[in-house]
Design a protein around this nucleic acid. Structure first.
Lengths: 109, 109
DNA sequence: AGCTTGCATAAAAATAATTTTATATGAAAT
DNA sequence: ATTTCATATAAAATTATTTTTATGCAAGCT
Protein backbone atom coordinates (compact mmCIF):
# COMPACT_ATOMS: atom_id res chain seq x y z
CA UNK A 1 0.00 0.00 0.00
CA UNK A 2 2.39 2.65 -1.19
CA UNK A 3 1.98 6.30 -0.23
CA UNK A 4 0.05 8.79 -2.30
CA UNK A 5 -2.51 6.22 -3.27
CA UNK A 6 -5.83 7.35 -4.67
CA UNK A 7 -9.02 6.01 -3.14
CA UNK A 8 -7.00 5.46 -0.03
CA UNK A 9 -9.82 4.91 2.38
CA UNK A 10 -11.15 1.80 0.71
CA UNK A 11 -7.71 0.42 -0.01
CA UNK A 12 -6.67 0.95 3.59
CA UNK A 13 -9.79 -0.75 4.79
CA UNK A 14 -9.25 -3.89 2.74
CA UNK A 15 -5.55 -3.84 3.37
CA UNK A 16 -6.02 -3.77 7.11
CA UNK A 17 -8.24 -6.83 6.95
CA UNK A 18 -6.00 -8.75 4.60
CA UNK A 19 -3.66 -10.04 7.27
CA UNK A 20 -4.27 -13.09 9.48
CA UNK A 21 -3.06 -11.54 12.71
CA UNK A 22 -5.16 -8.45 12.24
CA UNK A 23 -8.21 -10.50 11.40
CA UNK A 24 -7.72 -12.51 14.58
CA UNK A 25 -7.44 -9.33 16.59
CA UNK A 26 -10.68 -8.12 15.03
CA UNK A 27 -12.27 -11.39 16.06
CA UNK A 28 -10.95 -11.06 19.57
CA UNK A 29 -12.39 -7.55 19.76
CA UNK A 30 -15.67 -8.95 18.61
CA UNK A 31 -15.74 -11.27 21.59
CA UNK A 32 -14.39 -8.87 24.17
CA UNK A 33 -15.96 -5.45 24.25
CA UNK A 34 -12.50 -3.97 24.43
CA UNK A 35 -8.94 -5.12 24.96
CA UNK A 36 -5.75 -3.46 26.02
CA UNK A 37 -2.54 -4.16 24.19
CA UNK A 38 -1.16 -6.38 26.93
CA UNK A 39 -4.19 -8.61 26.69
CA UNK A 40 -3.73 -9.03 22.98
CA UNK A 41 -0.05 -9.67 23.51
CA UNK A 42 -0.84 -12.41 25.99
CA UNK A 43 -3.79 -13.88 24.16
CA UNK A 44 -1.83 -14.43 20.97
CA UNK A 45 1.71 -14.69 22.28
CA UNK A 46 2.89 -11.82 20.11
CA UNK A 47 5.52 -9.22 20.89
CA UNK A 48 4.27 -5.87 22.09
CA UNK A 49 5.70 -3.80 19.21
CA UNK A 50 4.19 -6.26 16.80
CA UNK A 51 0.78 -5.78 18.31
CA UNK A 52 1.24 -2.01 18.36
CA UNK A 53 2.22 -2.10 14.71
CA UNK A 54 -0.90 -3.98 13.74
CA UNK A 55 -3.13 -1.87 15.92
CA UNK A 56 -1.86 1.18 14.17
CA UNK A 57 -2.78 -0.28 10.81
CA UNK A 58 -6.25 -1.01 12.13
CA UNK A 59 -6.52 2.46 13.59
CA UNK A 60 -5.47 4.17 10.39
CA UNK A 61 -8.07 2.15 8.54
CA UNK A 62 -10.63 3.46 10.94
CA UNK A 63 -11.49 -0.04 12.10
CA UNK A 64 -10.73 0.46 15.77
CA UNK A 65 -10.96 3.22 18.33
CA UNK A 66 -8.54 3.66 21.16
CA UNK A 67 -8.51 5.32 24.50
CA UNK A 68 -5.88 5.55 27.17
CA UNK A 69 -6.99 4.73 30.69
CA UNK A 70 -4.22 5.04 33.19
CA UNK A 71 -1.24 3.27 31.78
CA UNK A 72 -3.27 1.07 29.51
CA UNK A 73 -4.49 1.73 26.04
CA UNK A 74 -7.77 0.08 25.19
CA UNK A 75 -8.89 -0.76 21.73
CA UNK A 76 -12.36 -1.56 20.52
CA UNK A 77 -14.03 -2.05 17.19
CA UNK A 78 -15.31 1.04 15.46
CA UNK A 79 -18.79 -0.26 14.91
CA UNK A 80 -19.85 3.04 13.42
CA UNK A 81 -17.84 2.18 10.36
CA UNK A 82 -20.40 0.95 7.83
CA UNK A 83 -17.88 -1.00 5.83
CA UNK A 84 -16.79 -2.88 8.88
CA UNK A 85 -20.39 -3.61 9.69
CA UNK A 86 -20.92 -4.94 6.21
CA UNK A 87 -18.11 -7.48 6.48
CA UNK A 88 -18.41 -8.46 10.13
CA UNK A 89 -20.82 -11.32 9.42
CA UNK A 90 -18.19 -12.94 7.22
CA UNK A 91 -15.49 -12.41 9.79
CA UNK A 92 -17.66 -13.93 12.49
CA UNK A 93 -18.37 -16.92 10.33
CA UNK A 94 -16.46 -19.88 11.63
CA UNK A 95 -15.92 -18.28 15.01
CA UNK A 96 -17.19 -20.23 17.96
CA UNK A 97 -20.57 -18.83 18.87
CA UNK A 98 -19.56 -18.61 22.50
CA UNK A 99 -16.83 -16.21 21.55
CA UNK A 100 -19.09 -13.77 19.82
CA UNK A 101 -19.89 -10.75 21.91
CA UNK A 102 -23.52 -10.39 22.77
CA UNK A 103 -23.28 -8.31 25.92
CA UNK A 104 -20.71 -6.05 27.47
CA UNK A 105 -18.18 -7.82 29.59
CA UNK A 106 -15.58 -6.79 32.10
CA UNK A 107 -12.10 -7.26 30.84
CA UNK A 108 -8.64 -6.16 31.45
CA UNK A 109 -6.33 -5.12 34.20
CA UNK B 1 -0.18 -12.98 2.45
CA UNK B 2 2.38 -15.68 3.20
CA UNK B 3 1.73 -19.31 2.32
CA UNK B 4 0.12 -21.78 4.67
CA UNK B 5 -2.11 -19.12 6.11
CA UNK B 6 -5.15 -20.12 8.12
CA UNK B 7 -8.52 -18.66 7.24
CA UNK B 8 -7.13 -18.21 3.79
CA UNK B 9 -10.36 -17.51 1.99
CA UNK B 10 -11.20 -14.35 3.87
CA UNK B 11 -7.62 -13.13 3.88
CA UNK B 12 -7.36 -13.69 0.14
CA UNK B 13 -10.59 -11.84 -0.41
CA UNK B 14 -9.50 -8.73 1.46
CA UNK B 15 -6.01 -8.96 0.09
CA UNK B 16 -7.25 -8.99 -3.48
CA UNK B 17 -9.23 -5.82 -2.87
CA UNK B 18 -6.46 -4.02 -1.03
CA UNK B 19 -4.69 -2.83 -4.13
CA UNK B 20 -5.59 0.27 -6.17
CA UNK B 21 -5.13 -1.30 -9.58
CA UNK B 22 -7.21 -4.31 -8.67
CA UNK B 23 -9.95 -2.13 -7.25
CA UNK B 24 -10.02 -0.13 -10.45
CA UNK B 25 -10.31 -3.30 -12.47
CA UNK B 26 -13.20 -4.39 -10.28
CA UNK B 27 -14.83 -1.04 -10.97
CA UNK B 28 -14.28 -1.42 -14.68
CA UNK B 29 -15.87 -4.86 -14.56
CA UNK B 30 -18.78 -3.33 -12.77
CA UNK B 31 -19.36 -0.98 -15.67
CA UNK B 32 -18.67 -3.42 -18.46
CA UNK B 33 -20.36 -6.75 -18.21
CA UNK B 34 -17.08 -8.40 -19.10
CA UNK B 35 -13.67 -7.40 -20.36
CA UNK B 36 -10.85 -9.20 -22.05
CA UNK B 37 -7.29 -8.65 -20.96
CA UNK B 38 -6.41 -6.48 -23.90
CA UNK B 39 -9.23 -4.11 -23.04
CA UNK B 40 -8.01 -3.75 -19.50
CA UNK B 41 -4.48 -3.25 -20.77
CA UNK B 42 -5.65 -0.47 -23.06
CA UNK B 43 -8.10 1.12 -20.66
CA UNK B 44 -5.51 1.59 -17.93
CA UNK B 45 -2.32 1.69 -19.95
CA UNK B 46 -0.83 -1.22 -18.06
CA UNK B 47 1.48 -3.90 -19.36
CA UNK B 48 -0.13 -7.20 -20.26
CA UNK B 49 1.77 -9.34 -17.74
CA UNK B 50 0.88 -6.84 -15.05
CA UNK B 51 -2.79 -7.18 -15.83
CA UNK B 52 -2.50 -10.96 -15.97
CA UNK B 53 -0.78 -10.94 -12.60
CA UNK B 54 -3.56 -8.93 -11.00
CA UNK B 55 -6.27 -10.94 -12.69
CA UNK B 56 -4.79 -14.06 -11.21
CA UNK B 57 -4.96 -12.58 -7.74
CA UNK B 58 -8.59 -11.68 -8.34
CA UNK B 59 -9.30 -15.15 -9.69
CA UNK B 60 -7.70 -16.92 -6.77
CA UNK B 61 -9.77 -14.81 -4.43
CA UNK B 62 -12.84 -15.99 -6.28
CA UNK B 63 -13.75 -12.45 -7.24
CA UNK B 64 -13.78 -12.95 -10.96
CA UNK B 65 -14.64 -15.68 -13.42
CA UNK B 66 -12.85 -16.21 -16.70
CA UNK B 67 -13.58 -17.85 -19.96
CA UNK B 68 -11.59 -18.16 -23.11
CA UNK B 69 -13.37 -17.27 -26.35
CA UNK B 70 -11.21 -17.71 -29.36
CA UNK B 71 -7.92 -16.05 -28.63
CA UNK B 72 -9.36 -13.79 -26.00
CA UNK B 73 -9.83 -14.42 -22.32
CA UNK B 74 -12.78 -12.65 -20.82
CA UNK B 75 -13.14 -11.77 -17.19
CA UNK B 76 -16.26 -10.85 -15.29
CA UNK B 77 -17.17 -10.29 -11.68
CA UNK B 78 -18.22 -13.33 -9.73
CA UNK B 79 -21.45 -11.87 -8.48
CA UNK B 80 -22.33 -15.14 -6.81
CA UNK B 81 -19.69 -14.39 -4.20
CA UNK B 82 -21.65 -13.05 -1.22
CA UNK B 83 -18.68 -11.22 0.23
CA UNK B 84 -18.15 -9.37 -2.99
CA UNK B 85 -21.82 -8.48 -3.06
CA UNK B 86 -21.56 -7.14 0.47
CA UNK B 87 -18.77 -4.74 -0.38
CA UNK B 88 -19.75 -3.73 -3.89
CA UNK B 89 -21.84 -0.77 -2.72
CA UNK B 90 -18.75 0.72 -1.11
CA UNK B 91 -16.65 0.09 -4.18
CA UNK B 92 -19.26 1.73 -6.38
CA UNK B 93 -19.37 4.73 -4.11
CA UNK B 94 -17.62 7.60 -5.79
CA UNK B 95 -17.85 6.00 -9.20
CA UNK B 96 -19.58 8.04 -11.84
CA UNK B 97 -23.13 6.83 -12.05
CA UNK B 98 -22.87 6.64 -15.81
CA UNK B 99 -20.13 4.08 -15.44
CA UNK B 100 -22.11 1.71 -13.32
CA UNK B 101 -23.46 -1.23 -15.22
CA UNK B 102 -27.19 -1.40 -15.32
CA UNK B 103 -27.68 -3.47 -18.42
CA UNK B 104 -25.62 -5.87 -20.43
CA UNK B 105 -23.49 -4.21 -23.05
CA UNK B 106 -21.54 -5.34 -26.02
CA UNK B 107 -17.84 -5.08 -25.49
CA UNK B 108 -14.65 -6.35 -26.83
CA UNK B 109 -12.96 -7.34 -30.00
C1' DA C 1 2.99 -26.21 -41.62
C1' DG C 2 4.51 -21.80 -40.31
C1' DC C 3 3.15 -17.11 -38.71
C1' DT C 4 0.73 -14.01 -35.72
C1' DT C 5 -2.10 -12.61 -31.90
C1' DG C 6 -3.65 -12.67 -27.09
C1' DC C 7 -2.62 -14.20 -22.92
C1' DA C 8 -0.55 -17.05 -19.06
C1' DT C 9 3.41 -17.95 -16.49
C1' DA C 10 8.43 -17.95 -14.85
C1' DA C 11 12.54 -15.62 -13.38
C1' DA C 12 14.84 -11.57 -12.04
C1' DA C 13 14.70 -6.95 -10.28
C1' DA C 14 12.47 -3.45 -7.71
C1' DT C 15 9.53 -2.04 -4.08
C1' DA C 16 6.74 -2.49 0.01
C1' DA C 17 5.24 -4.69 4.33
C1' DT C 18 6.35 -7.09 8.47
C1' DT C 19 9.23 -8.38 12.23
C1' DT C 20 12.76 -7.57 15.41
C1' DT C 21 15.51 -4.76 18.26
C1' DA C 22 16.14 -0.50 20.47
C1' DT C 23 14.48 3.73 22.31
C1' DA C 24 11.07 7.22 23.78
C1' DT C 25 6.80 8.76 26.19
C1' DG C 26 3.05 9.14 29.48
C1' DA C 27 1.17 7.72 33.79
C1' DA C 28 1.25 5.79 38.13
C1' DA C 29 3.89 4.07 42.16
C1' DT C 30 7.62 4.48 45.52
C1' DA D 1 12.30 12.94 41.73
C1' DT D 2 13.20 8.50 40.50
C1' DT D 3 11.64 4.20 39.14
C1' DT D 4 8.50 1.12 36.94
C1' DC D 5 5.02 -0.28 33.81
C1' DA D 6 2.33 -0.20 29.49
C1' DT D 7 2.64 1.21 25.11
C1' DA D 8 4.00 3.97 21.03
C1' DT D 9 7.43 4.80 17.70
C1' DA D 10 12.00 4.52 15.04
C1' DA D 11 15.60 2.00 12.71
C1' DA D 12 17.43 -2.13 10.93
C1' DA D 13 16.74 -6.72 9.25
C1' DT D 14 13.74 -9.90 7.11
C1' DT D 15 10.19 -11.42 4.18
C1' DA D 16 6.49 -10.74 0.80
C1' DT D 17 4.51 -8.48 -3.09
C1' DT D 18 4.71 -6.12 -7.33
C1' DT D 19 6.84 -4.96 -11.58
C1' DT D 20 9.60 -5.89 -15.44
C1' DT D 21 11.59 -8.82 -18.76
C1' DA D 22 11.61 -13.08 -21.07
C1' DT D 23 9.40 -17.21 -22.57
C1' DG D 24 5.72 -20.52 -23.67
C1' DC D 25 1.18 -21.95 -25.23
C1' DA D 26 -3.33 -22.02 -27.45
C1' DA D 27 -6.10 -20.45 -31.23
C1' DG D 28 -6.85 -18.62 -35.50
C1' DC D 29 -4.93 -17.06 -39.94
C1' DT D 30 -2.21 -17.54 -44.43
Amino acid sequence: MQAGTKGTELVKFFFALSEPIRLEIIRALLSAKELCVCQIVQAFGLSQPKVSFHMRVLREADLVLWKRRGRWVYYRLNLENPMLRAVLPFIEEGMEVSKIQTTACEVGP
